[in-house]
Amino acid sequence: MTKILILIILFLAAVEDIKKMEVGHIYPASILALSFVNFFLKPYISLKFYLLNSLLVFGVLFLFWLLGGIGGGDVKVSTALSFYAGFRIWDILLFSSTIFLLYSLVLLKFKTKLPFMPAVAAGTLLSFL
């Protein structure tokens, strides 16, 4: 059930990113809230591991943000998603980057800036399958 809610949140974030090239604060906050619900429902999950993994994800994506390759909303949503996905976040980021590369090759002729959140939503869906 939480996977479906996460996918709905990511879909809404992707729509907003396409329209405005921004992602609101409500999306990472919602994903983070669902992640903490997940921790309470599954007490065997190591919170320490998830915190360290999320810190690593934030660090890597923050560097991409500093270089101008990714937006701040993408960093926030991906970091919040790492609290839910754990180590699978790296699969999600790999799928997302591949999907983004494919559609950027097609759409780059039309736009100079492309939203990354649709690729994150699609990459998460692939990872959850």
Rank of each mutant, 00 (worst) to 15 (best):
G59A: 09
G123R: 09
S46R: 14
G86E: 04
L51K: 03
L93T: 12
L51D: 01
A80M: 03
A122Q: 06
K113G: 00
V15Y: 12
I26H: 10
K76M: 01
L107S: 07
G72S: 15
S30D: 04
S104T: 13
L63W: 06
F83H: 07
N38W: 11
V75A: 00
T2C: 02
E16R: 13
G73Q: 08
S82M: 03
V106C: 02
L102V: 13
K19E: 09
L10K: 02
L105F: 15
I26A: 13
A85M: 14
E16C: 10
Y103E: 04
L66C: 01
L81T: 05
V106W: 14
W90Q: 05
E22I: 07
G68M: 07
S54R: 08
L129K: 03
L114Y: 14
N38C: 09
Y103T: 11
T124E: 07
S127R: 09
A122G: 04
K109M: 03
L63Q: 02
F58K: 01
W90A: 04
L41D: 04
N53H: 08
V120C: 03
F83R: 06
A29G: 02
S96I: 09
L51V: 15
G24P: 05
P115T: 05
L105G: 14
K76I: 01
S54L: 10
P115Y: 13
G71W: 11
G71M: 08
K19L: 11
L34Q: 02
G72M: 02
R88K: 15
S54P: 04
M1Q: 05
L108S: 12
L56N: 00
F58H: 04
L32V: 02
T2W: 03
A119L: 02
